[in-house]
């Protein structure tokens, strides 16, 4: 790998990233929510704003999961160090999935608990989406230094690998909502599976080559 050529691009990003405070992730990723609701309310998302909002929040959740999953491979293969943002990104992914679910419960289903309860059990795509959401709860709850200390770094890290199946389930959920095989949801799944594959395959044979600064 031509490390020196790569570092020409990566080093400035790394030094810039060092100066960017992590709270900026929370601020920047909070802004789309009021904006999207405003758009929906004022007709900017078409005549069926609830579905559009639901989908938008779901997609941003998946995008954040993808960004979170990309951080380790980016460091390993590109030397790009964005590790300090990962917690904020994960927490925001959870925040978006809560909004996504909230839209479904309140705006889409209008609190029809009976129908929602039946759907959660009867409709595989909702079952899968709900499973992914439930899986994210313990990760969100333990996304703080106290939990890392309490659990111990090793078991904390092991627990947070739960995000791998969660991301896959999220993408499958997105694919299954569609009536036909749509390109976009398939792309999400492909990217997620790709990022997971990057973790496994090369790490075994290339373990000796890595560990450079």
């Amino acid at each position: 790998m031509p490390m020196s050529a790569l570092s020409k691009f990566v080093d400035p990003i790394n030094s810039f990233a060092r100066k960017v405070p992590t709270w900026l992730v929370y601020i920047l990723y909070s802004l789309p929510i009021p904006y999207l609701f405003w758009l929906a309310q004022t007709g900017g998302m078409g005549v069926e704003p609830i579905n559009a909002l639901e989908r938008e929040m779901g997609e941003i959740t998946l995008q954040l999961l993808i960004i979170g999953l990309a951080i380790t491979p980016a460091r390993k293969y590109l030397g790009l160090n964005l590790l300090k943002f990962r917690r904020a990104i994960g927490v925001m992914a959870f925040f978006y999935v809560v909004v996504h679910l909230g839209i479904w419960v309140l705006l889409d289903m209008n609190l029809r608990w009976g129908q929602m309860w039946a759907d959660i059990w009867k409709r595989p795509y909702i079952t899968i989406g709900m499973a992914a959401f439930l899986g994210m709860i313990p990760l969100a709850v333990t996304s703080n230094n106290w939990s890392v200390r309490k659990l111990g770094a090793a078991s904390w890290r092991k627990m947070h690998k739960l995000v791998y199946p969660i991301a896959v389930l999220g993408a499958v959920h997105f694919i299954m909502v569609q009536k036909v095989w749509e390109v976009e949801p398939l792309l999400y799944l492909t990217v997620i599976l790709g990022l997971l594959a990057l973790r496994y395959k090369p790490s075994q044979k290339a373990s000796g080559v890595s560990a450079n600064g």
Partner: peptide, 13 residues
Amino acid sequence: SHRVIGGGLFNSR
């Protein structure tokens, strides 16, 4: 049940 197009953000089902 279904959602009514044009029902806005609330009570459209």
